[in-house]
Design a protein around this nucleic acid. Structure first.
Lengths: 159, 159
DNA sequence: TATTGTTATACTCTATAACTATA
DNA sequence: TATAGTTATAGAGTATAACAATA
């Protein structure tokens, strides 16, 4: 069987037979899978009115189980402080999170999910998990284990 | 060894032990690898003054070996026609591509690389290939073959 | 009427840096 | 002086829809 990346590799082998483009077989496919899955995830979060970044913020708060500072959030999610402030303000306006003054440091604050924020996140998370299972339904258990292991090898060497 | 996704999974297992988040072990890692590699690729193309989309346009023209219409380009690269027109105009202004009137259909045109466009693309491609090899240097030959195969399985089921 | 490509518009998201208030 | 968080600004990039020319 031939996928879109195979077709690209075939074109390169004709246009530039002198080059070894085999790395594209991995890198190109990671990029393409990520793009397709990304669009699919956007569609999953959209009914809840959430962008992917907004989901990530809520999910980070949910799984940490304790309020986090804006600094912890933007470092975890690799956003600028300004971008995080904007996102936080939007989510506060929607009633999904709330800022709580810090007791130790009066410059700082803690961000926590509201009751409604927990409900929205849990609903989005459920859809997200179901969608991910569906995205992986073409792989058997061994495939998933192998794939996760290979990607982890990459992350361990680059993080 | 523990990577960033393992830590996220550990947090979920404590915060929501009722959920099966195993799919995140694959989907989360694909997203994270793609983001890290994406930033690295942006840095590789930057010295040539190219964005990733611009590189993709030039590379698509190079490997097809024939001039392409704007429609073919935006469908291949999954952009809107308006976005493609803007990109094409920028690349024309930089002297990297040129529009040629179509002979059969006077509404249409063909886009082709200029001599300079070929040179810039070839240089960027060389850097890109070297960078991709480096990104994959943590994997042995079998790993790369397996990884490409698993990702291809996903693409074949979703494209 | 439908299609090709361009243009005009508006929108989303972001990073940067200036700013405030504390430390 | 340095740091936490916010705000103001500007920039990049896009999609959408209106448009002109042609099929």
């Amino acid at each position: 069987m031939t996928d879109s990346v195979d077709r690209i590799l075939q074109q390169w082998s004709k246009a530039r037979p002198d080059l070894d483009c085999s790395a594209m077989g991995v890198v190109g496919r990671v990029g393409r899978v990520s793009m397709l899955w990304g669009k699919q995830m956007d569609a999953v979060f959209e009914p809840q009115g959430l962008s992917r970044v907004e989901f990530d913020i809520l999910a980070t708060l949910r799984r940490s189980q304790v309020p986090l500072t804006p600094t912890e959030l933007y470092q975890t999610l690799m956003l600028s402080s300004g971008a995080m402030s904007t996102r936080i303000e939007v989510l506060v306006q929607r009633g999904l999170i709330e800022r709580m003054a810090s007791e130790e440091d009066r410059r700082s604050c803690k961000v926590a999910l509201t009751e409604q924020g927990v409900a929205v996140l849990d609903q989005a998370l459920e859809s997200h998990l179901a969608n991910m299972d569906q995205m992986l339904s073409c792989l058997d258990g061994d495939d998933k284990t192998q794939l996760a292991g290979l990607l982890k090898k990459i992350l361990l060497s680059s993080e």
